[in-house]
Design a protein around this nucleic acid. Structure first.
Lengths: 339, 339
DNA sequence: CTGAAAGCGCTTACAG
DNA sequence: CTGAAAGCGCTTACAG
């Protein structure tokens, strides 16, 4: 079924049908109603490819995730993010194109992607700070939104959780409980979430006029097995607490602690980050910093769609708050729970 | 940069440039080389929307996943499937459009999707047996491939793991070990993987002239918490083994058993399905039926692309083998390990 | 408020 | 082997 046939059935030109489809206000109400009725009756759907070519807008947004991230397969982070983004996009009649990039092909594939005008905009999640894709996107002039602030480029739009404050609160919590060898398993040092959470950790010490022991800081990779390995490296340093920069890594860290015969929280208190669904069911239930990943995904889609449509000048910057959720892995602490 | 300009720079018509882009053999080699050089030099990328409109093929395939599935967020199944599919698609210059459907919008959204000619084909994963999307797709004439065989519709193409044999072997293993109250936590009864694995379970009994106690069969939903709940319902029936239809549910089942003071495998032997990465790290390491989900994703993409391009007549049917991986959750059994 | 016409950037018979 | 021309199915100034 073509727009031409709908026009014929409605007794108008295809221009007018097009106007109705695109909600152009310049159509007489009775005409609009008649055309809408015909469209409904014949179940007409405009060809989105033709619309894309004619209008220059495809109503498709790209979502780029890094395959390199080993956590891609173990962390519920990604499914939730995707869920948030697609929910909003579907509601607004946008489609989501998924790109898992791996470093080798990135150069080539991404350039192509960006310049073949298939996309109206992109969301870039879990990018590395020096990722070449940022350069390519900037050059291409395609609207895009980062999930995770960029540390140096002030011209880019982003959406982020307040990783610094979230981490800081987690570590303040541990220090207040009287832990004095608080270790951390960080995220990757080339991801902003890794850096910001580490700095929040350090800041919590500085506030009390202390400095963390460098031997208590170990880099992780946001994966479960990475959490295990890092915890194993940390145990000889005798930490009495550990702030793990993601719940998925905390799963591995708990496993390492159990295997080493450590009691949690008596010997080592543990705090994670994310509040993934299983956090409440871990053994023991995990104290963690909650962020709404699905909410981030939704807001990312809304913001990008707004940028695409209204062309509001970048940069856009949004930082979402986090919340410390206290469970038993950090030790009982009634007065804090009561807060 | 337009094809017209490339043509001018190459001293040919845009028809010839188009032929080179599309690998049409009817171009003189020297001409082809010259044009390719120009394309490279000016970094020309054809507009994929225009190509889509002109050729009738968009090189986009859709991947539909059910949001309804509560396991969507807890099961590494989906990321791996996506990874397999996108890897092949990227390599072949196809893009992947992701659709998380939820039942309400499905009717509307999917019809639109299917009929707006944005897609060359679709992969439908984790569908429900009576899913209305199947009807819509069939009517629309869009090529599609199911992940998971359909029990009654013999006209549809699918790719599946050998769920029946995998489950059968798992249960035979438990029965051979001398377990006599072997329970099962099944998948949803409206998903073919749930049904086939349950039938494999039952068949293992029938082979030995036995029948399973109906009280030992509990339906699960492929989620971690579903595994927990189902195991809690099973424990009063005093099973001495349980075949859990997915590793993710097995995580919940193990938790339930631990909380109930059951020793694994002494009191209750456990076998899962999937062999997700964490299976080897569970406490105790999980005996499970391995399937290559990523491999399924790859083969799905390859098969669909082949169908789209070569128009080979459906139905296409592919069943991939599974492999029993014996670890300690089912009890030590040297002679079987040696097999 | 509406229509005729041009145009979006390609592909592909058709003719030579 | 190559080019001129028609066409893919829409949108959108432009004119009225």
């Amino acid at each position: 079924m073509l727009i031409e046939e709908v026009a014929k059935l409605s007794g108008v030109s295809r221009s007018t049908v097009s106007r109705v489809i695109n909600n152009d206000p310049n159509v007489k109400e009775s005409t609009r109603a008649r055309i809408k009725e015909v469209i409904r009756k014949v179940n007409y759907r405009p060809n989105s490819v033709a619309r894309g070519l004619a209008s220059g807008r495809t109503r498709i947004i790209g979502l780029v995730l890094p395959t390199a991230q080993s956590s891609l397969f173990t962390d519920p982070y990604y499914p939730r993010l995707i869920q948030g983004i697609t929910a909003v996009c579907n509601a607004r009649d946008y489609s989501v194109m998924l790109w898992l990039t791996n470093p080798e092909q990135e150069q080539n594939k991404i350039h192509q992607l960006v310049s073949d005008s298939l996309l109206d905009g992109m969301v870039i999640a879990s990018y590395l700070i020096d990722d070449p894709i940022l350069e390519a996107l900037t050059k291409a002039g395609l609207p895009f939104l980062l999930i995770g602030r960029h540390p140096t480029r002030t011209d880019l739009s982003y959406l982020d959780a307040d990783n610094f404050q979230g981490a800081r609160e987690a570590v303040v919590h541990l220090l207040r409980l009287g832990r004095c060898r608080v270790a951390t398993i960080t995220g990757p040092n080339n991801m902003i979430a890794g850096i910001d959470r580490r700095e929040g950790y350090e800041h919590a010490f500085h506030e009390r006029g202390m400095s963390p022991d460098p031997a208590l800081i170990v880099e992780g990779d946001f994966s479960e097995s990475g959490g295990y390995t890092s915890m194993m490296r940390l145990i000889p340093q005798n930490p009495d607490a550990v702030f793990v920069a993601s719940d998925t890594m905390a799963v591995g860290a708990l496993r390492a602690l159990r295997e080493s015969g450590k009691r949690i929280p008596e010997d080592v208190a543990v705090v994670g980050f994310d509040d993934i669904p299983s956090a409440a069911h871990m053994d023991p239930p995990l104290t963690t910093v909650r962020q709404s990943i699905q909410g981030m995904g939704q807001l990312a889609a809304e913001t990008l769609i707004q940028i695409v449509n209204e062309g509001t000048a970048p940069p856009h910057r949004l930082v979402l708050p986090t919340e410390l959720v206290i469970r038993s892995s950090s030790g009982l602490c009634m007065d804090l729970i009561g807060q």
